[in-house]
Design a protein around this nucleic acid. Structure first.
Length: 870
RNA sequence: GCCGGGGUGGCGGAAUUGGUAGACGCAACGGACUUAAAAUCCGUUGGAGCUACGCUCCGUGCGGGUUCGAUUCCCGCCCUCGGCACCA
């Protein structure tokens, strides 16, 4: 053992030893409990960043702890390797996206290996290889056969920068998910869609089964995104006599059928087909024509922008309320959207805020039909504001035979009534839409379909998969490179043999990441995406760790994919991830200069910009990002301090789910701590290694007993901190305390007393083992120095002895009227009565109570005594 | 507006079931060692006060409440972060 700690040297050596001994390789083993520890796979952008290091350090700590406590741990890594940046790089450098991607993968793999993460690299996958994307295609063929995949001409989100269509999830808030400053355009396009709506109910309901295992906010975000609303569709017949002879009906969607007697108008979206008809037939007023034109000119995100004034126009039509035959005017308005429900609503101003606002503006009547049961006022008068309560205490009024019913009961009864009379039915609407998976890009999985003039859409036969991407694509084109590649496009129909066209869309890259972790369990399978039997052993994932940014993207797609795989018979469960940890971001303060914009910390000298000497303003702490120049390069840190120090800092500085602010001094502190551990082990390692494994034959000195107590208390604490709570920061703190206790003991140890030396050995060995999940390299080195041949990273976790952890004396706080008033020291095994006695015998307490009258005494066994006095 | 997280020293954070608030670390200050520096080691460090080597009072965003006892539970606010939002 070297006297000094040289991190880089030992890290390299230990990584090599682990690789040679294949210690992190795991295979199916029915004799042991298994644990699947997964982190979100990176996009091979070029270099790993601190966020990756944090993410994988958390996973590494948990995986190591599980290994040491007897689990067969699956811990794979791979590459989400399709996507835009590779294509952009190809255009820019006139190179091939695969070259760029694989070079990046090589760089980043080497970086990860240098951090020493405990991956089973045999299982590595890259989604851009035909061996992988072949199964994307296989899934699409299965989904096509099952009717879960379809083509339709639809209005889709289009990003001009990506030059492709996007899914709704990728266009949240009207902006591209990759280009936050690029508003999406809407285009009409023939597209492939996955029938998410078939699974909407399950996607929502199964979230309940994830309570406890998933963060509440992720569940909330998904519930919001799926957005189920239960209600009814009701048909309002058009009164042809006063509606230019137009016949038919307007179907509205409502969640408040109980308020239908309060309806005073029907409002339809400006895009509604009736409007089209009025315009076509020349029945539209000038006012209506202008309004509709105006609305269509406004982009959807503007039309629904916050605080936008409600505007509408009467259409000239009338419809009949099927419940009371009342004739209602039909309006069109900007706040009724064509994409939700039926694109038509019944306006009930008395009980809906938007309708109320609209009715006030256009002087429509307002009829109260719901009241709280103890309503004191005149029910014939309209409310001053919309009354939207619908709880148990609300009842119907002014609603003929339905009056007096509670809201919920009325909804059931009135929906049934509508159904029986054929003018309505119960209906559930979702905000979530079918997943538009077509992309007009070339660095993605080709869709395995052929368009035949005679046979229609024909899937590529499974034995002809994969449909490989051509290697000689021209990326310097305005169009889609695949569509311009004649050799790719022109094929013969697999069914009739006639000339046909290959589909030229590629799949959304979120398809790749929807099932990648199932491929890890059986990455070389050539018959199926994975062997269901092997998957049954490893999956579902026990712990998934990644960033919050995927709360409604990847995490909803992968839940969907699991349900589809279940229905295909590949897996037998509903949810793929039992526990989810969303780790916080790695942040750093930003700095700016008027002249040079963002500055990195080394460009700020004494508060001034290095380049121009202007005052540099230190901005707020923000997520590390290249554009803000507030990044720290992991490689540089590892060169300076070693991987162990970087990991220790990240695990210690904050709990995993919180944001972590990079702090150079705290990194040095972590390094200092490891040196401190090294020094004390160095001091004793020869003596401990030489005496081998022993057991204490009798009690050692009081100091030795105290150290053993601390050792076992620490084992208990840290097992809970890592295993149950995943609070690595407090786990590290506990190890620091134990280290401090070892230093204290070092001053008092009686070297001649074998029991004292044993206490030290026990403490040091436990410490080194418990350090292994956080700082595996130094732990491995110290473990060897202490005389062990096996690897510490797979050694058995130390066993906690409750007897030894027990204190033999307790310091019991004493309160008088709940205020801290002193402490008494008593034997650990004391009963309540003796404890109380000891408190009353204490001179200080006696003096404080003095003449006062004791009302009662509360004794919390072995914890606290509180004396209530008057 | 609705939903969900937070608010504790100079800083990061701890307090696991209502029971000693501030573990552990960073920074700072004082001291030891050293020719010196680095490294290391020891000590102090929430605030105020005092008859000062011990003790008193205050203190977990604010105001109330429950309790022998509240950072923890309840009610009402404030601030903050994140998500959703003319969704019928």
């Amino acid at each position: 053992m070297n006297e000094k700690y040289f991190p880089t040297e030992i890290e390299e050596r230990q990584q090599q030893r682990w690789a040679e001994a294949k210690v992190f390789e795991a295979d199916v083993d029915e004799s042991r409990p298994h644990f699947y520890c997964l982190e979100m796979l990176p996009y091979p952008s070029g270099r790993i960043h601190m966020g990756h290091v944090r993410n994988y350090s958390i996973g590494d700590a948990l995986a190591a702890y599980k290994r040491m406590t007897g689990f067969n741990v699956l811990r794979p890594m791979g590459w989400d390797a399709f996507g835009m940046p590779a294509e952009n790089a190809a255009i820019k450098n006139n190179a091939r996206p695969d070259t760029w991607t694989f070079e990046n993968i090589d760089t980043m793999r080497a970086q990860l290996q240098r951090v020493g993460f405990s991956y089973d690299w045999r299982r590595e996958i890259a989604s851009c290889t035909p061996e992988y994307y072949r199964w994307n295609q296989w899934f699409f063929v299965q989904m096509w056969k099952a009717g879960l995949l379809y083509r339709k001409n639809a209005t889709v989100n289009w990003c001009v920068k990506c030059n492709t269509s996007l899914a709704n999830e990728q266009a949240e808030g009207g902006f591209c998910w990759r280009h936050e400053d690029v508003p999406v355009e809407l285009r009409q396009l023939e597209q492939w869609f996955i029938r998410v709506t078939n699974y909407a109910d399950q996607l929502l309901d199964d979230l309940d089964t994830l309570e406890g295992g998933w963060p509440e906010r992720v569940l909330t975000m998904q519930r919001n995104w799926i957005g189920r609303s239960q209600g009814a569709e009701v048909d309002f017949a058009i009164d042809a006599e006063i509606s230019y002879g137009i016949r038919g009906h307007i179907r509205v969607f409502t969640t408040r059928i109980d308020t239908i007697y309060g309806a005073n108008a029907i409002i339809i979206a400006p895009e509604h087909e009736l409007i089209e008809q009025l315009l076509a037939d020349g029945h539209a007023s000038a006012e209506l024509t202008t309004f509709v034109e105006q609305q269509k000119a406004i982009t959807p995100q503007d039309r629904i922008a916050e605080g936008r004034e409600k505007e509408g126009v009467f259409t000239g039509l009338h419809a009949i309320n099927p419940f009371n035959q009342e004739k209602l005017p039909v309006w069109t308005a900007n706040f009724v959207l064509t994409g939700y429900g039926t694109g038509a609503i019944m306006a009930v101003p008395a009980h809906d805020e938007r309708d109320f606002e609209f009715a006030k503006k256009y002087l429509l009547p307002i009829h109260r039909v719901i009241i709280p049961i103890d309503f004191p006022g005149d029910v014939t008068l309209p409310p001053e504001q919309a009354f939207t309560d619908k709880n148990e205490t609300c009842v119907l009024v002014n609603s003929n035979e339905w009056s007096v019913l509670k809201v919920a009961d009325a909804q059931t009864a009135m929906t049934a009534h509508a159904e029986q009379n054929g003018f309505g039915s119960g209906k559930t609407n979702f905000k979530i839409r079918d997943w538009g998976v077509s992309r007009q890009r070339a660095w993605g999985t080709p869709l395995p379909f052929i368009h035949c003039p005679a046979c229609g859409i024909v899937p590529v036969p499974e034995d002809q998969l994969p449909v490989e991407l051509p290697k000689d694509l021209n990326f310097n084109t305005q169009g889609a490179p695949l569509a311009e590649h004649a050799g790719f496009v022109n094929v013969n129909c697999p069914t009739c043999g006639g000339a046909a066209r290959r589909d030229t869309d590629t799949m959304d890259t979120f398809v790749d990441s929807s099932w990648y972790y199932f491929r890890y369990v059986d990455p070389k399978n050539t018959e199926l995406p994975f062997d269901p039997k092997v998957a049954a052993y490893w999956t579902p994932v026990d712990q998934y760790i990644g960033g919050i940014e995927h709360a409604v993207l990847h995490l909803i797609y992968t839940r969907l994919w699991t349900k589809i795989m279940r229905d295909l018979g590949l897996v037998e469960f509903d949810e793929p991830v039992k526990n989810l940890l969303t780790q916080g971001m790695v942040c750093l303060a930003t700095a700016r200069c008027e002249e040079h914009d963002w500055l990195n910390p080394t460009e700020v000298l004494d508060g001034k910009c290095k380049f121009c000497g202007r005052t540099a303003t230190i901005g707020r702490t923000e997520k590390m990002s290249k554009s803000k120049k507030n990044t720290i390069d992991p490689d540089e840190m590892i060169n300076a301090f070693g991987s162990d120090t970087v990991r220790l800092f990240m695990l210690f500085a904050a709990p995993p789910e919180k944001d972590l602010e990079w702090d150079d001094s705290a990194v040095e502190g972590a390094s200092r701590y490891l040196n401190r551990v090294w020094r004390i082990v160095y001091k004793w390692h020869t003596q401990i290694a030489e005496c081998g494994m022993r057991n204490a034959d009798s009690e050692g000195s009081a100091a030795a007993r105290s150290l053993r107590r601390k050792t076992h208390q620490t084992i208990q604490r840290i097992s809970n901190d890592i295993g149950q709570r995943m609070n690595f920061n407090t786990g590290v703190a506990a190890l620091m305390e134990l280290t401090n206790a070892i230093y204290d003991f070092d001053k008092k140890i009686d070297e001649a007393n074998a029991n004292d030396v044993f206490a030290l050995q026990e403490a040091m060995e436990a410490l080194v083992k418990m350090l292994a999940p956080f700082v595996p390299h130094i732990a491995e080195e110290l473990w060897a120095a202490l005389g062990h041949n096996e690897f510490v990273v797979v050694a058995s976790w130390p066993v906690y002895d409750a007897e030894l952890a027990k204190a033999d004396e307790l310091e019991i706080p004493v309160q008088i009227n709940g205020k801290m008033s002193g402490r008494v020291i008593v034997a650990a095994e004391i009963d309540d009565e003796a404890l109380q006695q000891a408190v009353f015998n204490d001179e200080k307490i006696k003096a404080k109570i003095a003449e006062r009258q004791i009302v009662k005494t509360i004794v919390v066994p072995k914890r606290l005594v509180n004396i209530v006095v008057r």
